[in-house]
Nucleic acid binder design. Structure first.
Length: 563
RNA sequence: UGGGGUGUCGCCAAGCGGUAAGGCACUGGAUUUUGAUUCCAGCAUACCUAGGUUCGAAUCCUAGCACCCCAGCCA
């Protein structure tokens, strides 16, 4: 189990910067971070990396971490997303010091903009977006000044006020910072800081604003207003840092948070961009944001991942500035490590094949003790009914076995887990030659002891047919069938959706589970022995249907050897 | 061809001038009524390349090379 008190403190370049700042006596020894999502989608595992980083720092340095919604674009945002984000952050195990919205600062932001105008550092520009793009220049050519760049302060003040009151149409004017149209950094070529969205209905402020501030302008000031000391964001904002600093320097704000950038997480066999995840949801290529195959926090929760395993993952992958693609095996190891400790063991036959025990009386029911966890006797036992009709998994029987096969073969013996050794005497088939039933006999002298004079190599799981709980089980596999869907997409010039794995969801509707599983509750985690880790699907359960999701398979060296 | 970044094992990632941590993966082997777990062993004469400085360089200098990001009234 991932006990936070025994897990060594993570170390990374950002924590080193903080250590150095503390040692230098910066910020009066205060450490204040924030997690600033835009509520335009659900959080994913990449956000978890940022959450664990920001909240983790606050925890370890006795600092604070705010949750702040970066809600400056009402066109794309929705209250559904703010609710899901709050839930996901808390589920991950964190509690924010303060909950804020950038929209809380709209009045102040407006006043700062007026100040910028008065300072001669911002102007209203009447260029439309195409004209603006033309004058912006290119990566290699400098831009040209806007014809509106030298309006008087009074004129700018008047125009900006009229933008605010809704006098002008969307797109007709913007407020721009007056910096340098020839800067090699395009972000400094008089960036737009306010635009008109007259008819937008903002989830927090309703229709009270006709103009909305842009990210670059809003973020630094929001950080400043909250007294953030270290403003941690991803690498693509590195080029924006001069603008972040320009706004605060120009306005001579009382404090100046330090922006630090780290590289975002990439995970094999999935996509992480919100645009793409949103598209998968909207085109119904998946079952909503919480589809168990999605890399969203909500999806992984439904799949059966634990907060502990996700935090462990985030700490294992580290924080750097180098581009990275993390292998799925790391995530899988995190969840296996956690679930191996806590999951109760059960037997579940996913692809039932009927077995009749010819030497067992038809009316006999024997209750056998089975440990809930092989390494943890304190977790107790349960009793499993053993009768003359059983189900075993079709994959555990082969007529023509490959060499090394340790399971059941005609005439061969196998150990029934938690029960007796059984021999296959007869194979029954239908007219098409499909195996429909096995007629076997068990050795009553082998309960808890090995048979004498022979070695039984294999152990398989089973369920009493008469007592079986018939339940649907859903098996999941990677969402995409290539490690890097984005790269494959551009390389083969196809939509990334062309690489979706058609076999990523395999519903098994006729599974036979041991009786104890009928009492499973939403929070229980199970190991179905020899199969993997499973939990009830929370969404189906709410709909009144019991379905088990496979979180992850067990490590399977036999299956691997066959490949 | 402008600017900003990054290059250490298959994948992450320590290292901060004193002679290559760790995790995942992988390969052996032991124990096992889960082909699971656990355990034990192995796994970079080598740090993008080439020069240079130094007693000593992954760490400093110089010149290259490769990859990523930026031309939204998105964040």
């Amino acid at each position: 189990m991932n006990d936070e008190t025994t897990t060594p403190r993570p170390t990374n370049f950002i924590r080193q910067i903080i250590d150095a700042d503390l040692a230098a006596g910066k910020n009066q020894g205060r450490v204040a971070t924030r997690f600033p999502p835009e509520p335009n989608g659900y959080l994913h595992i990449g956000h978890a990396k940022s959450i664990v980083l920001n909240f983790g720092i606050a925890q370890d340095y006795n600092g604070s971490c705010n949750l702040r919604f970066d809600d400056t674009n009402p066109a794309k945002e929705d209250i559904e997303y703010v609710e899901s984000i709050k839930q996901d952050v808390q589920w991950l195990g964190y509690q924010w010091t303060n909950l804020y919205y950038a929209s809380d600062y709209f009045d102040k932001l407006y006043d700062f903009a007026v100040q910028l105008i008065k300072l001669g550092k911002a102007y209203v520009c009447d260029l439309n977006s195409e004209q603006m793009r033309e004058l912006r220049g290119t990566l290699t050519q400098p831009g040209k000044d806007s014809p509106y760049r030298n309006r008087t302060v009074a004129e700018n003040l008047g125009l900006f006020d009229r933008m605010r009151t809704g006098e002008f149409a969307d797109g007709s004017r913007v407020l721009r910072a007056k910096i340098d149209m020839t800067s090699p950094n395009i972000n400094l070529r008089d960036p737009t800081i306010y635009r008109i969205k007259k008819d937008a209905d903002h989830h927090q402020t309703g229709k009270s604003w006709c103009i909305y501030p842009m990210y670059d302008y809003t973020h630094c000031l929001s950080d400043m207003l909250e007294g953030i000391t270290h403003s941690i964001c991803t690498l693509e904002f590195e080029d924006h840092r001069p603008l972040y600093d320009w706004v605060l320097d120009t306005l001579k704000t009382p404090c100046h948070p330090q922006q630090i950038e780290f590289s975002r997480l990439n995970l094999e066999y999935t996509v992480m961009s919100k645009r793409k995840l949103t598209e998968l949801v909207q085109k119904q290529l998946v079952d909503g944001w919480s589809d168990p195959r999605m890399p969203t926090i909500a999806g992984m929760r439904r799949r059966g991942f634990t907060p502990e395993s996700l935090r462990d993952f985030c700490n294992r992958i580290g924080v750097t500035k180098s581009d990275n693609v993390v292998e799925m095996s790391v995530l899988e190891d995190c969840i296996r490590t956690d679930l191996n400790e806590r999951a109760i063991r059960r037997m579940a036959v996913l692809n039932p094949l009927k077995v009749t025990l010819t030497n067992c009386p038809v009316d006999k029911i024997e209750y056998l003790d089975a440990a809930n966890h092989p390494q943890k006797p304190e977790l107790g036992n349960r009793q499993i009914p053993f009768t003359n009709e059983l189900y075993i998994d079709r994959n555990d029987f082969m007529e023509q076995p490959p060499k090394g096969f340790k399971r059941l073969i005609p005439g061969g013996e196998v150990r029934l887990r938690n029960a007796y050794v059984m021999r296959c005497d007869e194979v029954i088939k239908d007219a098409q030659g499909n195996v429909t039933e096995l007629r076997c006999s068990y050795d009553a002298a082998t309960l808890g002891v090995n048979p004498e004079g022979r070695k039984v190599g294999g152990v398989i799981h089973w369920v009493s047919a008469r007592h079986a709980v018939r339940t649907e089980v859903r098996l999941y596999d990677r969402l995409f069938n290539v490690p890097n869907p984005d790269a494959a997409s551009s390389k083969e010039n196809k939509e990334y959706t062309a690489f979706l794995n058609p076999g990523s969801l395999q519903p098994l509707t006729a599974c036979a589970l041991e009786p104890a599983l009928a009492e499973a509750t939403a929070t229980d985690r199970f190991q179905f022995e020899r199969e993997g880790y499973f939990c009830l699907d929370e969404k189906m359960l709410a709909l009144g249907k019991r379905v088990f999701n496979r979180t992850v398979t067990l490590r399977d060296t036999w299956a691997k050897a066959g490949k």
